[in-house]
Design a protein around this nucleic acid. Structure first.
Length: 362
DNA sequence: GAAACGTGGCC
DNA sequence: TGGCCAAGTTT
């Protein structure tokens, strides 16, 4: 059974959306008003599952450090991770780096213009490929992000949770059918931006501003008063809790960091040595050269999308006599001054923990 | 095709 | 306070 109801007579969807975007859309975001595929690509990757206000300072810093794809491709992975630290979903940063290298090595340093070629690069899926292709090259290709799903679900009354494959497939078909025909490059840009702008500024989740919407008269959700029910909410799932012990091994102003494996949570970032319980942490502390007693710091809780992490931090002084800065850990380790943490890619809660330490010690 | 993957803002 | 989710992709 199709999830699509009868589509209302909205034959001029793209025309109305483009007109609305030109008059009421956003035109001054840092990654707009350029056709530089590198800048557009960088913004699209950062904006995956991340809001505009969060991205802007990261985007600015990143671009200042890596102004083009060649400089990014040539950078050490650790530098890329450090600039990404705090933004989350770190596989994006690893794929971003690999993608830059792919563009340099396989495409002569120039981003390919087709959706198909773009989607073969690491970190670029169907929606991001369409966004890059339309913004940078004026290609007629539809995006389908959270904004578009919300707009389509409401305007056309699409039932079902959009994260479900069956519903998402139907939305891709619908989105494709709505693309403007015979549009100039500039109109394509306005259309794609309009989809995002409408969802981000008017057709928001909480209190949509239907009075200002160009589709108010035709919108299924508005006409039937079902704005709160569309799109359908994600099915609820119990969020499991994990618990970990983290070691602040301190030597004066410096602490020991340990590089995390490339996959899994905080993959590729630098973090504190961890253990599964109190005894194991004390054992690790001794193995790393600490002889003093391990002291508790204030516990903290970090909430991810799919689980909750209770962190039990412990602090201990390094016993220099036992061998200063001996790297007895299994993986890669580094001694880092508390004032120099920014140079390393450190997970947000660990960063907070260490920031607090810097203020209270000495 | 479901689960994994971060963080911060909003109500 | 805590649930919900945002310019999705990969495994």
């Amino acid at each position: 059974m199709s999830v699509l109801p009868t589509i209302p007579a909205l034959t001029d969807f793209s025309v109305r959306l483009i007109a609305w975007q030109r008059q009421h859309g956003r035109h001054d975001l840092p990654w707009q008003n350029t056709r530089d595929a590198y800048r557009i690509w960088l913004s699209e990757i950062m904006l995956q599952q991340t809001q505009v206000s969060t991205v802007i300072p990261y985007y600015t810093r990143f671009l200042a450090r890596f102004p083009d794809v060649a400089s990014l491709a040539a950078a050490p992975a650790d530098d890329v991770m450090a600039l990404w630290a705090g933004l989350g979903y770190y596989s994006r940063a690893r794929n971003l780096h690999r993608c830059a290298q792919g563009v340099v090595e396989q495409h002569g340093g120039v981003f390919p213009a087709s959706v198909e070629a773009l989607a073969e690069l690491p970190g670029i899926g169907r929606s991001t490929a369409a966004a890059i292709a339309s913004f940078a090259f004026g290609a007629r290709a539809t995006i389908l992000d959270g904004n578009v799903k919300r707009v389509l679900a409401r305007v056309f009354g699409v039932e079902g949770f959009p994260g479900e494959k069956r519903v998402e497939n139907a939305m891709w078909v619908l989105a494709e059918s709505l693309l403007p025909s015979n549009a100039t490059n500039e109109a394509v840009v306005a259309y794609t931006q309009g989809l995002m702008d409408l969802g981000a500024t008017l057709c928001v989740r909480g209190r949509p501003d239907c009075a200002r919407c160009p589709f108010a008269a035709d919108c299924v959700a508005n006409v039937t008063g079902r704005q709160r029910e569309l799109p359908a909410a994600r099915p609820k799932k119990a969020v499991p809790t994990r618990r970990t012990w983290m070691l602040v091994l301190r030597d004066g102003n410096s602490v020991m960091l340990e590089k995390r494996p490339p996959s899994g949570i905080w993959g590729g970032l630098w973090s504190l040595p961890e253990a599964a319980d109190e005894a194991a942490l004390a054992q690790r502390a001794r193995a790393l050269g600490a002889s003093a007693a391990v002291s508790p710091l204030a516990p903290l809780t970090h909430t991810f999308t799919h689980f909750r992490l209770d962190i039990e931090p412990r602090i201990v002084e390094l016993n220099r006599v036992a061998g200063a800065h001996a790297a007895l850990a299994d993986g890669e380790t580094a001694w880092v001054a508390l004032s120099d943490i920014d140079a390393y890619g450190v997970p947000a809660p660990v960063r907070k923990l260490l920031d607090g330490l810097q203020g209270s010690l000495l």
